[in-house]
Structures are given as structure tokens and as C-alpha cells.
Design a protein around this nucleic acid. Structure first.
Length: 847
RNA sequence: GCACGGGUGGCGAAACUGGUAGACGCAGCGGACUUAAAAUCCGCAGGUCCUUCGGUGGGCCGUAUGGGUUCGAGCCCCAUCCCGUGCACCA
């Protein structure tokens, strides 16, 4: 071999890593406590049948570079990988292909593992986990028991997304606009008895503990919105001539005097009772219509307000006056109390409704324009409000709430948008619940010692003909249970949703092969929390909220030692790719296209097509596979380009042309060390000390400093540019001391580990560069002795000059004034002011 | 509609805390090497105008748009436009 050939050196070093196991993290606590720890985690993938595209390894490469650098800096690094292996696609493929989901999953996992290994990541593969393996989901079930014991898991009759065509329930994220996203089949709302997790009990803590986390502000904000805490009051409204009453929730108790009507959700339990005979037909028609309205229709109708008068009147507790009670679908049964007091003067929705149906509008907060024309929702000063008159909104809220509380008419109330988590699915390929339904109708848990409750054999992965979940197809041997105390029952046939396994996998990685415990408490104390967690924004809310919830429950059980699982979170931006589309909208694969300066054309026909940058997808024919990139450029080039493209957090387009630039850089590094003709060392490589090339020696130390700084700050693109700068300088140098080359290769190794190993060994390095100590830069070499000053006159650049680092203001000023280019601009003018920024610039302010 | 990101050369992007805008790379151009090409190596390169025999020297403009603060603004403040993402009748 003479030329740089990644297809030879990459397998060679991957094999070395496989046999010598440099990335195996100790499991022995005594060994671990000798060094500081660093836990760097990727969001583990769902192993789909499509395999990886170049978007996946972006985050993986970033964490790998950090893991490698930290390891070289003397940390014990935990850097694991695993599979979020339960999920619907495998089950659907199983039905289609007549295979077991476990077989399909294994095939996909094997493919993912192969693809990931080709990138040369420094994972500790001895800790690989698979959420669908019984020795993993055993502990998922065990955690569920903890939740159940704490009263956080319960069964309830709730509305679910039911798809008649598939005879199964779908998750919210699988339904868009009232249709199943995969097949377009209609989905309807149906009441079913389901398992729920009481995440709402943790709403406040999930909200408050966000503040201390080093997460992107946007993600924290999304979680805050999702939890949706709002503070206000509950107010009870009595009914005129009836014994019942209903309660409304409001964030604006100060506007109670302006409540001119009330609205109940169509599903509100009181609707049937209070409707007057004259209104009954209209109300019933409206209720039926609302019930049958699909999500889509309800969303579309959001622009126009509809509703019906019930005929009943409630009493405004502040004014004592009767107000009409309406029903309308703009009031949601699922939020607050399912009933509102309507204040059209100060709420846009109420205003629109009042205008549509001619209901009275009263101004009770001063500060806006005419409330008859437009609702005034900002804070102001209370008017027409009896005891509140003259009070600013904040004060009026407090007064009104106190007044209501004193009379037993209302109370302070905090309301969340967060709902309890619907935790069961009618699927086969998920964790069975460790639950038995006894003959007397009560629920019992499976004893811990009997876990796991394994997935049973079934003849088909479809619901039963009478619509029960696939697990109901299991034989009596699985379904029928006799508990140790002799009670009999049948197993729960729902399974857990895909989120369950990913709620705690970061804990299993700490102690992945422990078959007596989910994890050892000592290892948990050593490793947690995760120091760096990298993944896509698509998990901003669900996964990250669910995992935080479970973690807090485990914390309350004394099973983990930290309040939060993920101290620092980083989101990588999506990678886009060019797609080509003709006038009829047909897509073309890049291979069919001649992409030139003057436009893109179909090869053969020469038809002009539109080139655009879009999200990668099969249908757009623009998916880039890492396998292809590795075949053409090598894994090191792929790794480098993934990070050189731009800032990790940014959305950016994949440009195959630019990949070549990264390959050229690595080839250049190769040629610094290896003579392409002879395969021996290059002639410029010398055994002289690094001081023999003082300029290059300085450049090297500068490079160490900058690469270290930028890598730890996760600015990988600039870290790479500094290495390119060094390689360019080394190419121009007359000689290259071996010691300098070896150090540079060490610095390069987190980014391009295969090439680095090869060159390190050729340069006589001891052992593997992947676990060599990270070089320390010499501050004396990094320091400059002269600096360039910019000389400005009136803020405009007129000259540059070199001056010693320690030059005083007077010295630099004298140098600047002596410069003829500056003189010309200062000629005949009085200097009013002289600005001196040490080491940077001077500015003459002239009259 | 609301919230959060983001608009810098032909392109991906740099610019530490308000201090020389465009590092590094792609594409492009010129030169060397070669019979030739590729590869490689060396160099040029925001726009525009003037100047010079010239590969010289210089002016002006320029970080989405319009204002402001400052000796000095890509960066800070106000307003506007465009793009992306998330949420969306949440009382």
C-alpha cells in the first residue's frame, strides 16, 4: 500500500479494537473510583428496516469525538450503544412477511450494528442493550411494579384513537388529521379501559427542575408549554331554579363582574339535566354532532364559533345576576372543569362567540379601546366591578379570589395542560404488563421473583376477531395464572408503549449484564447523571419528559441518587439533501441527474429538472446511506464531513462534492508521513527534536489548544479547520520532525481514528493512539510575541502595523502616527480622542 | 395567531466578551510538474470605481430591510420583511 486507502486500514484497525478492547469501561468500582467519570450518551435508535442514513451518525460521531478526547484526558468514559427494539413497524412487517417480530428485529439490529461499527465508534459493546430482550424488559416490568405500588399506574376509561381498518388502537403520534399516517385509514375516538400513568402528579417538579438543567432553552420552553401550568381560580356557579351547580376554571378571576354568560363543553355531565324542553332538540343535535366530529373537522371549524343555548341560567356569584348557559365545542371537556365563565370584553374567543350570538359585552378592565369592537386582554385597571374598582389587574385577581374563598364560592387553583400518560397499547411487540386480573375483578401484580412475564407464542400478530389485543390469542397456559397464594386470574393482554424501554435504558447501561438487579446502586452513584446526551429535537417533549418522570419516581423510591437523568442535552440539526423533481412532480435519483453549474438535467433525455434541498426521504429519492459514503470515501472521511459541514445544532444540506474536501485533507496528512511511491517514511520526516522547526512547533501547540477548546465546546467544524490549517503549514515546511507528526496524529485521532492509528504506528508510537494521553499544549509556545494592530481614523481602517505584545498605548500611538498612510489621514486635523484596545486596534477620532 | 430558532461571498461556513468581516473547505481562475490529462504542489479570489508598464497603490460600498446607541455594530436597542421548527380554541 502506498496511497491512502481507507478500505485497507479501516478494517485493520477495527479488528485491532475488537480484539484488544481499548474501549471497554471497567465494571469494578475500585478501579473506577481511581479516575473521574464522564458519561456520554446517544439517543439509541429504533432499528428500522431501512437502515441508517447519514443523519444518524452525525450525533454519534459528535459524541464519539468527545468520548475519545475525554478518555485520552484521563476520564473513565461510559459510551454505550443499544437498541430501542420494540415497536410497531416490526410488528407490521411481521404480519406482512409472515415472520416473527423478533426475527425481523434481530435482522434489523444486526444491520444497524454492522453499519454503526463501520464508522469506528469507541462504544463499549459489552454493554449493548436491547429493550425487547427478556433480560431487559424484565426490569422494565419491575419498574412498572414500582409505579403501580406508588399508586402512579391505574386503569381508567379514556378516549383513544381507534382504527377500525386495523382493529387496533393507535398512538397519538401515529395519527394526523384524523387519519393513520401510514395507510390513510380513518381513526375515530372511542372510550376504552386503559392503563394510565399519573405523570400529572409530577407536573410541578418536572417544571421546576428544568431550570437547573444545561439544556437548549428552546427545548426547556417546549417542555414548559407542554406541562402548561396556569394559575387562577375555580369559581362555582349556582343555577337559577335548580339545586345543581357547576365549577369553572379561570385565570382571570378579576373579570368575574364581566362574565355575561357561561359555556359548558358538549360532553359536560350537567348538559342533559339542565336543558329546558324547548331547547332539548337543538342541544341534543349539537351534542351528537360534536361527538361525531373528527379531530380534523373540529380543527378546521376552529375559525368559526358554534354553540347552542341550553335554556338554563346560572347566577354570577359576583353580581348576583342571572347569566345564560350555553354549550359550545370551543370549550374542551378535557381541560379544566369542562366549563367556563365567558368574559367577552376581555377574552378573544368569548368575544367572537358573543358577537356571533348577540350576547352582552361589558367592560370591566380599563386600558383598551372599545370592548364592543375588540376584546382587551392585557392587564389594566378594574372598572364596573364593585369592590375591585380602581385596582390594577394583578391586585384585583388576588382580591377577587380572597372574596370568593371567604364566601365559599371559589378557591385558588393551579391547572396543568399536561394529561396523564396513556400507557397501554393493543399490540403484540411490546412489554407485557406484570398484571393479573383476578376472578373477583380485582387486580394483582406478578411477584418480582416471577419476572419477566415473557411474550407468549401466538398464531398471528393481529387482534382477535372480537377485537381483543393479539396477546389474547395466547393459549391458556400463558393467559391463566395461579398466584402463589392460590388466587386465580388471567393475564393483562395489553402491552406497554414503545416509550417504556427508553425511559430507563441509560440506567441499564451502567450495569448491563447484572442479572440480579436492574443496576447496582454503587455504580449508579458513580456514573449518574449523564454528562452529555445528544439526539434529535423530535424527542424534545415525549421521550425526554417520560424519562424524566420515571427518573423522579425512581428517585423517590431511593433507587437513583440524582433528581434529573440528563445534565446536559444537545440537539443535532437535521441533515437535508438535494432532490431533483421534474415539471410533473416526479423525483429522480441523483445518479440519474447531471448536476451542472447552469442547472440540473436528466441524463439521456436532457430534460431540465428543479433542484431543491429537502428532508431526506425514500419518496424523494434523496436518502444518503453511510454505506455508500464509506465505500467511496472511507469512514474517517465520513466522520470528518459529518462534523465539518457546519455547527452540530444547525440544519444543513449534505453535499457530496464537499465530502471530497475532507478526503483530500486526510490524504494530505497521509502524504506528510508516507511516501506514496515507496510506502516508506517521507524524506522530510526527521528524527530531530520539535525545536528544529520552531514555526511548525508553535503551530502544533496552537492547534492542540484550539482543537481541545473547540471540541469540548462542541464546535467540531472549527476544530477541524484548525487541523487543516496545521496540515497546510506542515506541507509547506521544509522538514517534519517525527515528534511533531506523532503529536499531530494524536490530536487528529478522535476525529479520524483509523488513519491516526495507522500513522501513529508508522511513526513508532507505543500502543494504540486511541488510548494515548492527550497532548498538553505549552502556553509559552502558544503566546505570540508580536501582534497586529489595526489603525483606524474615525472608525475606518487605514493601516495595519506590528507591535510587541507588551507595547504601551504611547508606543503604539507613536508607531501609528509615524505611518505615512495614517499621516495622510491625520494631516491638518486635531485628534480629539485616541482609543487604544490592547493587542487589537487603535482609533484616532479627529475633528 | 403564539413561542423558539435562523437570514453573512457563486456555495457550506468563520468572527473569543462591541474592536482588521469572509478563517477553513467546495466550486472557480492562473502557474509549476506531465507528451497530454488526472492527481499533486504554488498562488489568486466579496462587489465596484480610480490608478499603474505591471502580478502596483488606493477610494467607496458591503453581514435581510429601515432607524437608533457608540470613537467603533454581523454582534446591543426599536420597527419591518423572509425562511425553518414546535404548539395551536388550554379559559
Amino acid at each position: 500500500m502506498s496511497r491512502y486507502d481507507p478500505s485497507v486500514i479501516e478494517p485493520k484497525w477495527q479488528e485491532q479494537w475488537e480484539t484488544r478492547r481499548p474501549f471497554k469501561t471497567p465494571t469494578d468500582l475500585a478501579e473506577l473510583t481511581k479516575k473521574p467519570k464522564y458519561y456520554v450518551l446517544d439517543m439509541f435508535p429504533y432499528p428500522s428496516g431501512a437502515g441508517l442514513h447519514v443523519g444518524h451518525p452525525e450525533g454519534y460521531t459528535a459524541t464519539d469525538v468527545v468520548a475519545r478526547l475525554k478518555r485520552m484526558q484521563g476520564f473513565h468514559v461510559l459510551h454505550p450503544m443499544g437498541w430501542d427494539a420494540f415497536g410497531l413497524p416490526a410488528e407490521r412487517a411481521a404480519v406482512r412477511d409472515g415472520l416473527h417480530p423478533a426475527v425481523i428485529t434481530k435482522r434489523n439490529v444486526d444491520n444497524f450494528r454492522r453499519q454503526i461499527k463501520r464508522l469506528g465508534f469507541s462504544y463499549d459493546w459489552d454493554r449493548e442493550v436491547d429493550t425487547s430482550a427478556p433480560d431487559y424488559y424484565r426490569w422494565t416490568q419491575w419498574i412498572f411494579l414500582k409505579l403501580y405500588e406508588k399508586g402512579l399506574a391505574y386503569m381508567a376509561e379514556v378516549p383513544v384513537n381507534w382504527c377500525p381498518a386495523l382493529a387496533t388502537v393507535l398512538a397519538n403520534e401515529e395519527v394526523k388529521d384524523g387519519k393513520y399516517v401510514e395507510t390513510g385509514d380513518a381513526v375515530e375516538r372511542r372510550l376504552m379501559k386503559q392503563w394510565m400513568l399519573r405523570i400529572t402528579a409530577y407536573g410541578d417538579r418536572l417544571l421546576e427542575d428544568l431550570d437547573a438543567l444545561d439544556w437548549p432553552e428552546g427545548i426547556k420552553e417546549m417542555q414548559r408549554n407542554w406541562i402548561g401550568k396556569s394559575e387562577g381560580a375555580e369559581v362555582r356557579f349556582g343555577l337559577e331554579g335548580r339545586p345543581e351547580s357547576f365549577t369553572v376554571f379561570t385565570t382571570r378571576p378579576d373579570t368575574l363582574f364581566g362574565a355575561t354568560y357561561c359555556v359548558l363543553a358538549p360532553e359536560h355531565p350537567l348538559v342533559a339535566a339542565i336543558t329546558t324542553p324547548a331547547q332539548r332538540a337543538a342541544v341534543e343535535a349539537y351534542v351528537t354532532e360534536a361527538k361525531n366530529k373528527s379531530e380534523l373537522a373540529r380543527k378546521e371549524d376552529a375559525k368559526t364559533k358554534t354553540g347552542v343555548f341550553t335554556g338554563a341560567h346560572a347566577v354570577n356569584p359576583a353580581t348576583g345576576k342571572p347569566v345564560p348557559v350555553w354549550i359550545a365545542d370551543y370549550v374542551l371537556a378535557s381541560y379544566g372543569t369542562g366549563a367556563i365563565m365567558a368574559v367577552p370584553g376581555h377574552d378573544e374567543r368569548d368575544h367572537e362567540f358573543a358577537t356571533t350570538f348577540g350576547l352582552p359585552i361589558i367592560e370591566v378592565v380599563k386600558g383598551g379601546a372599545d370592548v364592543a369592537a375588540q376584546a382587551f386582554t392585557a392587564p389594566g385597571v378594574a372598572v364596573n366591578s364593585g369592590l375591585l374598582d380602581g385596582l390594577p389587574t394583578a391586585e384585583a385577581k388576588k382580591q377577587m379570589t380572597a372574596w370568593l374563598e371567604a364566601r365559599g364560592l371559589g378557591t385558588r387553583r393551579v391547572q396543568y395542560q399536561l394529561r396523564d400518560w396513556l400507557f397501554s397499547r393493543q399490540r403484540y411487540w411490546g412489554e407485557p404488563f406484570p398484571i393479573v386480573h383476578l376472578e373477583d375483578g380485582s387486580i394483582a401484580t406478578v411477584p418480582e421473583a416471577q419476572l419477566p412475564v415473557s411474550l407468549p407464542h401466538v398464531d398471528e400478530f393481529k387482534p382477535t376477531t372480537d377485537g381483543r389485543p393479539p396477546l389474547a390469542r395466547a393459549g391458556d397456559a400463558w393467559l391463566g395464572v395461579t398466584l402463589p397464594d392460590g388466587r386465580k386470574g388471567v393475564r393483562e393482554v395489553n402491552t406497554m408503549p414503545q416509550w417504556a424501554g427508553s425511559c430507563w435504558y441509560y440506567l441499564r447501561f451502567l450495569d448491563a449484564r447484572n442479572d440480579a438487579q436492574a443496576w447496582s446502586p454503587e455504580l449508579e452513584k458513580y456514573w449518574m447523571p449523564v454528562d452529555l446526551y445528544v439526539g434529535g429535537v423530535e424527542h424534545a417533549v415525549l421521550h425526554l419528559l417520560y424519562a424524566r418522570f420515571w427518573h423522579k419516581v425512581l428517585f423517590d423510591c431511593g433507587l437513583v441518587s440524582t433528581k434529573e437523568p440528563f445534565q446536559k442535552l444537545f440537539n443535532q440539526g437535521m441533515i437535508l439533501a438535494s432532490s431533483f423533481q421534474d415539471a410533473r412532480g416526479k423525483y429522480y435519483a441523483p445518479a440519474e441527474i447531471d448536476d451542472r453549474e447552469d442547472g440540473a438535467f436528466v441524463k439521456g433525455s436532457g430534460e431540465r429538472v428543479k433542484k431543491q434541498i429537502e428532508k431526506m426521504s425514500k419518496s424523494r429519492l434523496n436518502v444518503v446511506s453511510p454505506d455508500d459514503v464509506i465505500r467511496d470515501y472511507g469512514a474517517d472521511t465520513l466522520r470528518l464531513y459529518e462534523l465539518f459541514m457546519g455547527p452540530l445544532e444547525q440544519v444543513k444540506p449534505w453535499e457530496m462534492k464537499n465530502v471530497g474536501g475532507c478526503l483530500r485533507f486526510l490524504e494530505r496528512v497521509w502524504r506528510l508521513v508516507v511516501d506514496e511511491e515507496t510506502d516508506a517514511s517521507t524524506v522530510k520526516l526527521t528524527d530531530a527534536g520539535p525545536e528544529s522547526e520552531p514555526e511548525l512547533h508553535k503551530a502544533l501547540h496552537k492547534c492542540i489548544q484550539l482543537v481541545e477548546r473547540d471540541t469540548l465546546a462542541m464546535r467540531f467544524n472549527t476544530a477541524i479547520s484548525h487541523m487543516m490549517t496545521f496540515a497546510n503549514e506542515a506541507t509547506g515546511a521544509k522538514t517534519l520532525p517525527r515528534a511533531i507528526a506523532r503529536t499531530f496524529v494524536t490530536v487528529l485521532s478522535p476525529y479520524a481514528p483509523h488513519l491516526a492509528e495507522e500513522l501513529f504506528s508508522r511513526l513508532g508510537g507505543e500502543g494504540l493512539v486511541s488510548v494515548a494521553p492527550w497532548p498538553r499544549f505549552d502556553p509559552a509556545l502558544v503566546a505570540e510575541d508580536t501582534v497586529t494592530y489595526a489603525v483606524q481614523v474615525l472608525g475606518k481602517l487605514r493601516a495595519e502595523l506590528r507591535a510587541p505584545v507588551g507595547a504601551t498605548e504611547a508606543e503604539v500611538r507613536a508607531l501609528a502616527e509615524a505611518d505615512p498612510r495614517v499621516k495622510a489621514w491625520l494631516d491638518g486635523k486635531a485628534v480629539k480622542k485616541f482609543v487604544f484596545v490592547p493587542r487589537r486596534l487603535v482609533n484616532f477620532v479627529v475633528a
